[in-house]
Design a protein around this nucleic acid. Sequence first.
DNA 1: CCATAATATGACCAGGCGGTCACATTAGGA
DNA 2: TCCTAATGTGACCGCCTGGTCATATTATGG
Lengths: 224, 224
Amino acid sequence: MDTLLAQPKQTFANLPPEKRESIVRAAVAEFAEQGYQRASLNSIVRRLGISKGSLYQYFDNKEALFLHVFDHFTQQVKRQVRESMAGNSPNDFFVAARQVLLAGIAFIDNHPEYFQVYLKVLFERDVPRREELVARVRLFSLEYFGPLADLAMGQGLLRNDIPVPKVVFILDAMLDRFLQGYAQPYLDGGLALAGMSAARLHEEIDSMVAVLRTGLQPSDIGDK
Amino acid sequence: MDTLLAQPKQTFANLPPEKRESIVRAAVAEFAEQGYQRASLNSIVRRLGISKGSLYQYFDNKEALFLHVFDHFTQQVKRQVRESMAGNSPNDFFVAARQVLLAGIAFIDNHPEYFQVYLKVLFERDVPRREELVARVRLFSLEYFGPLADLAMGQGLLRNDIPVPKVVFILDAMLDRFLQGYAQPYLDGGLALAGMSAARLHEEIDSMVAVLRTGLQPSDIGDK
DNA sequence: CCATAATATGACCAGGCGGTCACATTAGGA
DNA sequence: TCCTAATGTGACCGCCTGGTCATATTATGG
């Protein structure tokens, strides 16, 4: 599960770290812009000012380079989640949701290209090991919300006419789609999420989470 | 707004309808599988058993063919919406939402490839006139929900601490993401929406709309 | 200093692309 | 029947792709 998808060749490991990073950066940029199949190794080496032969000394082929990039991506996600959750593990289901959403926003702000790579993978066919890649990312959310929802349901904090997996789906879907709108401006329904001040964005998030809370809690619990 | 994006050459118009349709079908299939840039005219003519020269007698270039396909797509959407709404114009905001969702499901069932083309356009760059194309489709939903939401808000049927555009966004986002899950199995959070019986699917839709209703209505209105 | 191993290079390959065009085939009216 | 206009065809063009490899360059350590 945590195993790496692909390891670069030894030659790559021998490189000074800043060169390794610049190579990964260039590759991420290319995959973010073009997706997997349209991404061009020629374009990547052009960006880097190195020869194609060199790139093939570092990675077996295009697929290995891509999988290495995706490994970096999941590590960054993990790090961002850990950072955003640091210290406070919320017991309230919807406070947790809010936090995940903020983590997502922070991730897109910090690594917009990585998120584009992910979106491309979602909807492109013939991406190597696509299902596995997608599953790895989606699990971050599902594995996190699942237990929390179980707990909340047990405490009677979620309406019991909707099964837990459905609750998790609704929550996850809403957050996911919000992030799509944040990353892809014409999916924000004209709200201009991307150009918003942090304060306004937090208001949008809060009102959305409030809607989810009211919608998903039992009817006999008072509104906020 | 309703004008066509591109018209084929006269030669195409002179073709017998079934040939025109088979050409569009082949093109849709290719664009659905590969997106715009990766789609191959060679592959399309191979599917059809016609020569490449012929295709260029029908359309000026790849872009014109694609835009013609997209014109067909929007027409199909329009038809599906008209059909699904036939007769009953719901006065209840959330009944309307349910109906839009059902129309979306029906559309994906009837034209899965067209929906894939749309998803590809959403997340691929360098698609000709992408923003315009996306806007055309999204407007179906936004222009429909907007006035309904205005009305509902005026009647005090929506919580007044959330502005109408935000309400429309939340509703639209949830429906949109549900359809993504229906069309792209690993986006359904394990609910297996695609393989579901119609009856079960309707239950899922109903419970989701119920959540939206409870979440979006004023707190002083009783739950359903 | 030199031998050897590690790394860097870019010309080159086969194959695919969108697009063109000279030519072959067919259709229609006189 | 025959001339003309419309339609169909596929070899070909320049360009780009992922990938290879013989060769040049650099590092290393005895």
